[in-house]
Design a protein around this nucleic acid. Structure first.
Lengths: 142, 142
DNA sequence: CAAAATTTAATTGTACGCAATTAAATTTGA
DNA sequence: TCAAATTTAATTGCGTACAATTAAATTTTG
């Protein structure tokens, strides 16, 4: 009788637990990130900086799937904190290069055990984690 | 040498693809939801309304893992659109009951093929979808 | 019973995300 | 070559998320 609307039940949505779990995990980072003075978005931005040392906003956006509308204010905040520098590329003034400062690099020492702190609070087996990672990558493919 | 920082590489984070995939999926709902005039948050709120007809903000919050800080403005917007009514519970004035209007119920007819429209754009097999669902539920457990 | 504790929704303030637009720099192509 | 198209970051505006606080209603407890 109500079969017609079966697909609209919350429990039949795949999107919803994905959305809820994402927020839940970001929340579990909160305590660990508070200790190093970063928000989650600032943290993943710093993960990119620690790997690349210098990168354009464009390339950062590709790695994080975020546009300048989101990144510009985040990067300005990180600059305020003294963790990065923002400077136009001399050979292409459209590009803005973001570079890691000594202070930004130093923060990595404090961030190094953040992943472990959070992993402890998750209930996934190694196998589940790997499978989940694979599926999520597939979802992210264009 | 750099092993110490291996855990801080973006590709070794489980949280990041979860966060990125969640945003990606919400985005894939955009076109279908634009057609019925809802945002994603308004949509999942309406999913609850279509199932329950009448529910308190408190219970809605438990189902969606959202607090009144998020829900109050969403529900006010849905009320503006004429899709729901907001009224204090007569036996406990602390509670605010949200009820579906005829217009809100009518919108379900237009929403009924939203899930199918979005599912088409995903690349997951039935098995993968079920496994993903199970893992996400596990993540959402307290 | 009455004071204290709890529950509930709303409000306030901060920080995203993202679409759309703008403006500047660069590249392309007739 | 130089006008048109493209690329890039910034800006603007809207809609969440969420912590912290507030205020009202209810429940608990001494």
């Amino acid at each position: 009788m109500d079969e017609k609307y079966e697909s609209l039940k919350l429990e039949n949505q795949l999107c919803f637990p994905l959305y809820a779990a994402s927020r839940e995990i970001v929340n579990r980072y909160k305590t660990a990130l508070d200790n190093i003075g970063l928000t989650y978005t600032q943290y993943i931005t710093m993960l990119v900086m620690w790997e690349h040392k210098c990168i354009s906003v464009r390339d950062m956006g590709k790695l994080l799937y975020l546009d300048s509308g989101t990144l510009t204010p985040v990067l300005k905040k990180l600059e305020q904190k003294g963790l990065v520098l923002r400077k136009r590329d001399s050979s292409d003034e459209r590009l803005l290069n973001v570079t890691l400062t000594d202070e930004g690099l130093a923060l990595r020492e404090k961030a190094v055990d953040v992943p472990q702190q959070v992993k402890c609070t998750l209930n996934l087996s190694q196998e589940e984690a790997i499978f989940l990672y694979g599926i999520l990558q597939k979802l992210l493919e264009k």
